[in-house]
């Protein structure tokens, strides 16, 4: 039991990120509503962010905002501070994700103007006519 718990604690959020990623991915390729696809895309991206942030976490560490004078005088022990690099990367990833979402929403409105629906199969039906 103890061992089992240890394994769970060691990896659980990597597993759950995979679950989230699968949910998002499925929505992107399996759902026929275009807005759903977009929501899936956002879920996918947050799942990746979760993975990166998890990679940066350390047990019992502080947030990566230090006290300038203290650090300059005494230095800092790296193990006590959360790894800031994944955070930086993920800030960028969030911005990218919201940008893509914005563009996609604009295109969605164009599609709606053109076809009057956001269901993939209905659009294909209209195109077939």
């Amino acid at each position: 039991m103890e061992q089992f718990l240890a394994i769970i604690i060691a990896k659980y959020n990597y597993w759950l990120y995979v679950v989230l990623m699968m949910i998002g991915f499925y929505a992107m390729i399996g759902k026929r509503n275009l807005v759903k696809k977009l929501i899936g895309m956002n879920i996918f991206q947050t799942a990746i962010i979760l993975m990166f942030v998890s990679a940066g976490a350390k047990y019992g560490a502080k947030i990566p905002i230090l006290n300038k004078h203290e650090v300059l005088e005494h230095g800092v022990r790296a193990a006590q501070v959360v790894n800031p690099l994944p955070h930086v990367l993920m800030l960028t990833a969030i911005v990218v994700s919201v940008s893509v979402t914005g563009v996609a929403l604009a295109i969605l409105q164009r599609i709606y103007r053109e076809y009057g629906t956001l269901e993939e199969d209905e659009i294909l039906e209209k195109l077939g006519r």
Partner: peptide, 20 residues
């Protein structure tokens, strides 16, 4: 726009896979 939307979905999957 429809083609572009398809591209967005596929392109995002590609970029996300790369990022993974």
């Amino acid at each position: 726009p429809l083609a572009s939307f398809n591209y967005i979905i596929m392109g995002s999957i590609g970029a996300c896979f790369y990022l993974l």
